[in-house]
Design a protein around this nucleic acid. Structure first.
Lengths: 340, 340
DNA sequence: GAATTGTGAGCGCTCACAATT
DNA sequence: GAATTGTGAGCGCTCACAATT
């Protein structure tokens, strides 16, 4: 544990153990063809000196650093407290542990040009691969990295998805299941509240809503579909507009918006689920609980993170797109259980 | 923008521009002694080819990577959604922008041995320096990095603070100001709710509470001091115990606990600030608002992050400990404004 | 002689191969 | 002859110095 001011090298460890730098390298990298007693001697010297190989030298010759990066936009401060990122990070961490990689998050804000930072990271070889979440803020970045042929996995659905390795969830089928559930419970006027068309996942969830209504032989009423920003306030406002159309149920495209929807319903003196049933989407682990507890389509964010690492790490011959299934979690807002 | 499969080298760029690798290196690193027309020619080739220097080679020779790391514990999922980290990250990002460094967060969970990860990071030269937040979970790590003489700045107050470069806030003086404020408003039975003794910041804030009462010539009553876990629930329980002692005000050592304290006061049918005044501590930017709005001691977390980077980056002759001042922010819970 | 440019060496590893047992 | 070990070269830069204008 006593460490000298300058860092030791393979050569020096070899000298101390009476072997060449090659043998030390073999011991460190766990290669065969090292005699047991030699291995022990080298390992003893390593332990004694606290030697750690220089990563820059290693990276220079092997072209690998063992680092995986997640690009995280931080323009909006909320993003950091977002339970989505929290779960995604947990999943990526699991994936990195599986693959013996080091996980690092690169916060990128709009002030600095993200391209500058990222060229430094990947193009210049800081990280072996990058996980980037889809969204308006990352479209340019994703295209640039793709064009440079960099090792990248995109989480979610960016505007331009050509030639990308992606991990996504079953948005359309998930929402279809949510709406089919409401229809199955006897609801006849099912509304939809979701984010604007610029959010692809919102568009997909809206399609799922339509699929289910068409499958059930129902008509589609444009007035029962409302868009707003994917925030609590957005949900609140959209719900007020929707409630004027007298729906008996709503599928809300994000749980965050669903909080606003529940608030608007309560403000109108309506009961959930008796007057209006609600089914959300997302079901993130750290998200705040609602009262009554929200029925929602749970997307497996932790698995998404873990899968993204696997996609990054394995051979290139993997499927371009991995879509993970969602699960409908029954709570108290859909009227499937209890006194409704 | 057309990129070939293999990355270019300095040598190749030099050949394309009709100069040596040295001249290209000078252009890239912005050194003098390059003729203007040569510089232009080299820059044109760089732009054309999209050349980016290999960071591993750079790091190998210069012993610097330009990367700063924040070690972030993720055992508890809440930590990620914590407004404290959110603000700290924002500050570190500002500091890195100032110093033209790249900022990276290393999530470390208790499952994997954090020492393994970190030896890889610093000892082996992935990052030039590390910012570590104090806390029970990081004590071992901090000691190990200090013993290895690694470039590190600790945020907050670890159990063993010997030989560390630290950035901290005025916990003691901040709490003293909070309590002096309550005393100045005529409160005579000032209580304290804070975390257990294992939290050093809590101990310091308790000392500040005592300082202010002693300064005001008041006695100290042990029954007016209550400890619990630094959570909303902890604050709630401690407040219920405290309220049995009939205090007319409370200084709560964290805003999170203060939320629980306000809830307990309301549950007892008491009014804030009329019956019981409350002053918290922290004032993090992203923290949820309370009703009535909380009077609190604001610690400058963003500045803490920024300062930590400066400490890491500048010469070693900087002060070992930088303590940033806190500010009392008047809200509606102390009775200084409005109808109380 | 000052500004500009190029050359050689070396950072600390890994890999292919040769030389040992 | 198979297992084990060592040697040489090279990854792509930066730095000190020499060589050029």
């Amino acid at each position: 544990m006593t460490e000298t001011s300058h860092n030791l090298t393979l050569e020096e460890i070899g000298k101390l153990a009476g072997v060449s730098r090659s043998t030390v390298s073999r011991v460190i990298n766990g290669q065969r063809h090292v005699r047991a007693d030699v291995r022990d001697r080298v390992e003893a010297v390593i332990a004694e000196t606290g030697y750690l190989p220089n990563q820059a030298a290693r990276a220079l010759v092997s072209n690998r650093t063992g680092l995986i990066g997640l690009v995280m936009p931080t323009d909006a401060e909320e993003l950091f407290g977002d339970p989505y990122y929290s779960a995604l990070v947990a999943g990526i961490q699991l994936g990195c542990a599986d693959a013996r990689l080091i996980f690092s998050i690169f916060p990128v804000d709009g002030q600095r040009d993200e391209m500058t930072v990222l060229s430094t990271l990947v193009a210049q070889g800081f990280v072996d691969g990058l996980i980037v979440t889809a969204g308006a803020g990352s479209d340019r970045l994703i295209t640039a990295l793709r064009d440079r042929g960099k090792n990248m996995v995109v989480v979610g659905h960016p505007a331009d998805d050509r030639g990308l390795r992606r991990v996504d969830v079953e948005n359309r089928a998930g929402s279809a299941a949510a709406v089919a559930h409401l229809v199955g419970l006897g609801r006849t006027r099912v509304g939809f509240v979701g984010p604007g068309a610029s959010y692809l996942y919102g568009r997909e969830r809206l399609e799922g809503y339509r699929d289910a209504l068409v499958d059930a032989g129902r008509g589609l009423e444009d007035r029962l579909v409302r868009h707003a920003e994917p925030t609590v306030e957005g949900g609140f406002e959209a719900a007020h507009a929707l409630l004027a159309e007298d729906p008996d149920s709503v599928h809300v495209a994000t749980d965050t918006m669903a909080v606003g929807v529940l608030r608007a319903i309560a403000e109108r003196g309506l009961r959930v689920p008796d007057d209006v049933a609600v089914v959300g989407f997302d079901g993130f682990p750290g998200a705040p609980r609602t009262e009554p507890s929200l029925t929602t389509v749970v997307q497996p964010v932790v698995d998404v993170g873990r899968t993204a690492v696997h996609q990054l790490h394995r051979d290139q011959d993997l499927a371009e797109l991995v879509v993970l299934p969602t699960v409908l979690r029954i709570g108290a807002t859909c009227g499937a259980i209890g006194g409704a």
